[in-house]
Design a protein around this nucleic acid. Sequence first.
DNA 1: TGAATTTATTAAACTAGTTTATTTTTTTCG
DNA 2: CGAAAAAAATAAACTAGTTTAATAAATTCA
Lengths: 190, 190
Amino acid sequence: MENYEVLLSYFKHIKGAPLEEAEIKEITSYFGKRIYKKKTLLMSAGEANTKHYYVEKGLLRLYIIDQNGKEFNILFARERQWIGDLGTPAETPYFVETVENSVVYSIAEDDFHVLYKRYISLANYIRKSYVFLQKRFVSILSKTAEENYEELVSEHPELIQRLPQYQISSYLGVTPVFLSKILAKRAKKD
Amino acid sequence: MENYEVLLSYFKHIKGAPLEEAEIKEITSYFGKRIYKKKTLLMSAGEANTKHYYVEKGLLRLYIIDQNGKEFNILFARERQWIGDLGTPAETPYFVETVENSVVYSIAEDDFHVLYKRYISLANYIRKSYVFLQKRFVSILSKTAEENYEELVSEHPELIQRLPQYQISSYLGVTPVFLSKILAKRAKKD
DNA sequence: TGAATTTATTAAACTAGTTTATTTTTTTCG
DNA sequence: CGAAAAAAATAAACTAGTTTAATAAATTCA
């Protein structure tokens, strides 16, 4: 499989101009591309020097397993989004898993670093991620699970469609049982 | 007040080499430096094009006020740390306030952007901030307030000394009343 | 297709954390 | 210094969310 079209169109986009031959060569040399079946682990807690992933097709999640064995979803990545542990090369506490059958590009930290020195907009993706996480942090802290669910429905309705309910509850920081309660209550209002 | 020593030593540090005359000129031309009394607001929700702040002396906090008027501290910055809304130039939902009398450098977004294109380690501060916030996010989500308090004590004992208790409770995402309960319980174990 | 497995629902007892109110302690500053 | 204001403690009633367990519904795949 050697079609890097989606990846290259992303780099063209962040460069803001067509890519030169040499750039295309460099970019494609850094990235691998693979197909993964649903529920495949791409990255596990304990690993060091983890990769960064860019999703061409499908849906992935980054999560942690706490002391009690409970999973918490930190973020999802769908088509044309990045996912991975920005704390690499340190040993990661996180897992990355496919939620759907997916097509994914991967790149090692060193190469990623080279690229974001060259394409400052790539570094900007990190900044945007920070802003996104901070917003999510505030929501989880200051709002009820019910409010957070409504926010998710209105801001990312497509995720509600594509995710099983227990993955959503884990993203909202509540138990599947409690989310089910919220939905039951919500359904009555009709 | 025109002593930029602390700021310049920071840039020397992230450059990894002594600064040239032209660099010093550029950096000092971008930053302002001011003294603020304790409890002074430097940035308020609703403002756009907010500044980034680098603390020479003192302690600042970034917080939000939710729908019910309740404050949540998102992060603190003490000596030689950055604080501000990375979402700028968009209208910010956050506040920045001094907790102690402080000496603070400030820089506008445009200039900040110019600098982190030149000093990639400055962009790295954003990456480190992301990693820090993600860790904090996971802690708040998966641990009890008591556990989070113990974590704060062991990782940032100096903050416990410098902050009033109600600022700590707001950082942990609980009410002052509940933190007081935790401390009472904790004190008994002696 | 249908048996097995995974996911979602419901219920009931429980707990971490909130709210409101009052009192005590600490800090501020004229 | 002493009065006023701010911060912390304590108590009691409350609520958002958990836990455990049993049942029902939906999905998987041989």
